[in-house]
């Protein structure tokens, strides 16, 4: 007889699904709210909306030089600008997986699944590294 216990889904799968569901909704709400504040002019942008067509076809470096748009984590201190406000929602959406992995890490640790603890720890390291803006390349 086949050993059915050998085939099973990770018990953390449903928890992961619930975290994604709720945080994704929060992220989308923040994203749309920030964008509405930008489009309606409640928050004034770095670059006026009507001037945008002059800039969006520029290469990234040139765009950054001409508009003084934020890089790295500068956006946090510039959330009062209309064209920066939507980045908060974008950052929340980009953080959903990171949050899920943090929860997974402690869940796996609790049940002593060593290989899964290792894999989530390495993934978390790379996620934090890419989010931290610590890696830089020079041209």
């Amino acid at each position: 007889m086949e050993d059915t216990s050998a085939f099973e889904n990770a018990s953390e799968q449903k928890l992961y699904a619930r975290i994604v569901y709720h945080t994704n909704h929060v992220g989308l709400f923040v994203l749309v709210a920030g964008f509405a504040l930008y489009l309606t002019g409640v928050l004034s942008p770095h670059v006026p909306l009507e001037d945008l067509p002059q800039y969006w076809s520029l290469p990234l470096n040139e765009y950054l030089e001409k508009t003084d748009a934020p890089t790295g984590w500068q956006w946090i201190s510039e959330l009062s600008y209309g064209d920066v406000a939507p980045l908060l929602g974008i950052a929340v959406l980009a953080s959903v997986t990171l949050l899920c992995y943090l929860v997974l890490f402690f869940q796996f640790l609790q049940r002593g699944a060593k290989s899964l603890v290792a894999i989530t720890a390495i993934e978390l390291f790379f996620m934090f590294l890419s989010a931290s803006n610590l890696i830089q390349i020079s041209h």
Binding site: Y38, G72, A91, A94, S130
Partner: peptide
């Protein structure tokens, strides 16, 4: 998500396109 953070940190995410 890792690549998305890098593009965002480098300023390559324009809300007027992305949203």
């Amino acid at each position: 998500s890792t690549a998305a953070w890098i593009y965002m940190n480098k300023g390559a995410v324009l809300p007027i396109l992305t949203v």
